[in-house]
C-alpha cells in the first residue's frame, strides 16, 4: 500500500465489461491515458469515473498489481534492484501467452511505458527459438500466402533459414 500523502485520493476506473476499480492516485497516474484525462479535465470531480472502453477487468487487475508494486519500488529507492527483477519474474511466471497478449494490449491502450517495455521483452523471450507456426498461432495471424507464394518468400529469404533448429 502506498503511504504517500495524507488524504489519499482514489481514482475510479470502469472497464469495458462494466467493472468498477478503485485505484490509489499514484498508481492510476502511471497510466498515461488516465493522467491526460485529468490534465484535460482539471475540474473533474473527485468521484469522476474514468471509462476504459478497451480494457476488461482481468488484464486491468494484473496491470494494477504490477504498477502498484513498481510505484512502491520507486518510493523505496529500490528501482533497478534485484527485488524488482524477482518481482517481475514471479509476476510473469504464472501468465499464459493469452494473458500476456491481453496485458500488452491493455498496457498499450493505457500507455504505460515501463510495463509495455517489460511485456514486449517477455514476449520476445518467449518467441525466440520458436517455429514459424508457433509464432503465427501466438499472434493469431492468418497465413494469406498461397503455397507457391510462401515458397517464393522462403526462397528469397533462404539466407535467414539456414540451419533452422527450433524448439
Amino acid at each position: 500500500m502506498s503511504k504517500l500523502g495524507q488524504a489519499k485520493r482514489i481514482i475510479f476506473l470502469k472497464t469495458a465489461d462494466g467493472q468498477l476499480f478503485e485505484v490509489d492516485e499514484p498508481v492510476a497516474m502511471e497510466f498515461e491515458i488516465v493522467k491526460s484525462f485529468f490534465d484535460e479535465n482539471e475540474d473533474a470531480a473527485d468521484d469522476t469515473v474514468v471509462p476504459l472502453p478497451n480494457v476488461s477487468a482481468e488484464p486491468l487487475a494484473g496491470i494494477i498489481e504490477f504498477c502498484k508494486a513498481h510505484v512502491e519500488f520507486r518510493a523505496n529507492g529500490a528501482a533497478g534492484k534485484d527485488e524488482v527483477k524477482k518481482f517481475n519474474a514471479e509476476y510473469i511466471k504464472e501468465k499464459s501467452n493469452e494473458q500476456l497478449k491481453e496485458l500488452i494490449l491493455a498496457a498499450n491502450y493505457l500507455n504505460i511505458k515501463e510495463m509495455l517495455d517489460f511485456l514486449t521483452e517477455t514476449i520476445a523471450n518467449r518467441l525466440k527459438n520458436k517455429s514459424v507456426e508457433y509464432v503465427r498461432a501466438f499472434f493469431g495471424i492468418e497465413n494469406d500466402f498461397t503455397p507457391q507464394e510462401e515458397e517464393a518468400v522462403r526462397k528469397e529469404y533462404e539466407w535467414a533459414f539456414e540451419g533452422v533448429d527450433e524448439d
Partner: peptide, 15 residues
C-alpha cells in the same frame, strides 16, 4: 528485442 534471425524469419507468416 529478439535475436535478429528470428525476427527475419517472421517474413513467411503472412503478406
Amino acid at each position: 528485442l529478439m535475436p535478429t534471425e528470428y525476427a527475419v524469419r517472421t517474413c513467411v507468416l503472412s503478406k
